[in-house]
């Protein structure tokens, strides 16, 4: 079943002068048709200004389409009556870890969403405990968020979304400001939630190696879908990717270089383990 469905989605950013007359229009998204199946892990790539964040913000009804429709869980985002249901169903984790934590104690921040939904206290306690456990942050329940590392803060933000019992979580460049170890913890958390809780993950990122682990990779360019497929399919189209300002993962670059020298490696190779495995296999045949 499709949890997110965009048809003919167009979004324009219009700048106005002092007299509220429009002076310029930028098409951030143009006529995008896209359906995302429930339970999938989808990575969205694209250079700055490709429209990926604009797309993400529609899923949570933070932005509304200029033209076209978007449905989330079958609900039209443009219908105001659906607003709170949509925001509960599709959680969102943003880029800057500091700017999305509202409360000054971890557990109270995690409770913020369901509190807004009017969930009774007894149930709140249960949800907060479960959400913190799911991201492995139970020990920090009573701490101040200011003392946490970037990765830990993002895990709290994930718990905050989880406490609303969403079916889908959108990560809008949530790893961009983290160091490698923070990125690792956050990405691992995403995969666990996807695998164990069946939550649909939409990961918007600049990091190619994060896209490698997804079920599906979508590359946006200039407000259009430029590529769409499994990581294997997308990363096999080297030329196209480079033209879109993307880069291949280092391992894929190495594998491609080896292939160019005549080693019969399957294309594309996306992880270190895969390359090692393939090389061992080839060597044993000699």
């Amino acid at each position: 079943m499709d949890i997110i469905k965009a048809s003919g989605l167009t979004h324009d950013y219009i700048t106005y002068d002092e007299d509220e007359r429009p002076i310029s229009v930028r098409h951030a998204l143009e006529n995008v048709d896209l359906a995302i199946e429930e339970g999938q892990f989808v990575a969205i790539l694209g250079h700055n200004g490709s429209g990926k964040s604009t797309f993400a913000k529609h899923i949570n009804a933070l932005l509304l389409p200029t033209a076209g429709t978007v449905t989330v869980g079958g609900m039209d985002i443009a219908d105001e009556a659906n607003l709170w249901d949509i925001r509960q169903l599709a959680g969102m984790v943003f880029q800057n870890p500091d700017n999305q934590i509202i409360a000054t104690v971890v557990e109270e921040d995690v409770a913020f969403g369901p509190e807004n939904m009017g969930v009774p206290t007894k149930e709140l306690e249960k949800r907060v405990a479960e959400a913190l456990a799911a991201v492995g942050m139970t020990a920090f329940a009573k701490e101040s968020p200011n003392k946490l590392s970037g990765g830990q803060k993002q895990r709290i933000a994930i718990a905050g979304a989880l406490a609303m019992r969403p079916r889908c979580i959108v990560f809008d460049e949530s790893t961009a400001m983290l160091d490698p170890s923070g990125r690792k913890e956050v990405v691992a958390t995403m995969h666990r939630l996807n695998r164990e809780e069946g939550i649909t993950v939409l990961l918007i990122t600049h990091y190619m190696d994060e896209a490698v682990g997804a079920d599906r990779v979508i590359v946006l360019d200039g407000g259009h879908i430029a590529m769409d497929g499994t990581p294997k399919q997308v990363f096999a189209r080297t030329e196209e990717l480079l033209n879109l300002g993307m880069q291949l993962p280092k391992v894929t670059q190495l594998a491609n270089a080896l292939t160019a020298e005549g080693l019969p490696l399957p294309a594309p190779i996306l992880t270190e383990e895969e390359l090692i495995e393939e090389l061992c296999r080839l060597r044993s045949k000699i």
Binding site: N60, L62, W84, R87, Q88, G91, M92, F94, N96, D98, N99, Q100, I102, E107, E108, A111, F112, G113, P114, E115, N116, M117, G118, V119, P120, T121, L124, E125, V128, A157, G160, A161, M164
Partner: peptide
């Protein structure tokens, strides 16, 4: 201002709509 915009968005995304109907973790 940037932080304020980000925060407002994060609060909205988590269904914040004023004090009406809000419950409390620790009433």
């Amino acid at each position: 201002f940037r932080r304020a915009t980000d925060l407002a968005q994060a609060m909205e995304a988590r269904c914040y709509h004023g004090g009406k109907g809000r419950t409390k973790l620790h009433p």
